[in-house]
Design a protein around this nucleic acid. Structure first.
Lengths: 152, 152
DNA sequence: CTATATCCGACTTCTTCAGTCCGCATTCAG
DNA sequence: CTGAATGCGGACTGAAGAAGTCGGATATAG
């Protein structure tokens, strides 16, 4: 509950790895999988998804592989998760399509939708570059601290 | 992925319902279940969990039922979710017990742990009272807006 | 005593996640 | 041209967790 799937995790790791090795024109799925001890075939499918969603560029054939489609700063964790796991909603009864069947109106949803937006906002604010840098940029740390101060 | 379980949803709804009916000394699981169209036996187990974790007070026997153990302002959404679904971690490899087995060190975890804390902070800031009130308190809306501004 | 409650463990069913398998298409080296 | 390396993509299996059910024990008001 409230957990990222391993696929999303793997995807983030893979993009981070690519961001850390910009010298290579293309790294194969196997390269990345070996680097992290991830099942290669599984990672392959994940990278394919990311390619289909425009986050990666792929090149088939020998010495082929994947490379970031954009600068690492321009790819957010949100995009990665969204590409792999699809749109996320905190609540089971997403008010998107057919809303909540239960009850007149589960008024609970409205505040939780706001939580949902907040989480999405935080994830959008984190770039692959941020993951690749071992030290977090200072301004982000401060933002996080003030954020907690505000919301508590 | 990244979704609340229905149990947690149900728990929040039930607490909200109790908060909206402070005049009743105790409402039975069936009362609440009927009000929302939730399976009664399932909700019963959820309320038992909440009781065991000190969020509700129970009274067996005829005219028995449940009541909030504290003021609705003093019960956070975080507590409810935690009581029902256990401790939550965004990442599969929680750095709690045995940390991540994969790889030297999946450095990805550190930034995501911060996201985790942020989400927890937001959930802690929301009380059952907030859910029960149809209008969100203004200061909280502003906080959320500033939060997004800061983190984006 | 009885009806209505909570309490609690075991169980089934359903869905989703994680991972595998296999065949096909693309590209490059020799 | 051929073969190896790679991406592409559907189908499948097994395991885990979520959702919900069942049955029985205990407590309590009338």
């Amino acid at each position: 509950m409230l957990k990222l799937t391993k696929k999303a995790d793997y995807g983030l790791m893979a993009l981070k790895y690519l961001a850390e090795h910009p010298e290579n024109p293309a790294l194969s799925a196997k390269d990345v999988a070996d680097a992290y001890g991830i099942p290669a075939q599984l990672l392959a499918k994940i990278l394919q998804l990311l390619t289909k969603n425009g986050l990666l560029k792929s090149h088939a054939g020998m010495n082929g592989g994947y490379a970031l489609a954009r600068d690492a700063r321009e790819i957010s964790a949100y995009e990665v998760i969204h590409a792999i796991d699809g749109p996320f909603f905190i609540t089971s009864c997403t008010k998107g399509a057919k809303s909540c069947e239960l009850t007149p109106s589960c008024t609970i949803k409205e505040p939780l939708a706001r939580v949902n937006d907040t989480i999405a906002g935080v994830l959008k604010s984190i770039s692959i570059q941020d993951l690749a840098e071992h030290e977090q940029p200072a301004h982000r740390q401060h933002a996080a601290q003030r954020l907690v101060a505000l919301t508590l």
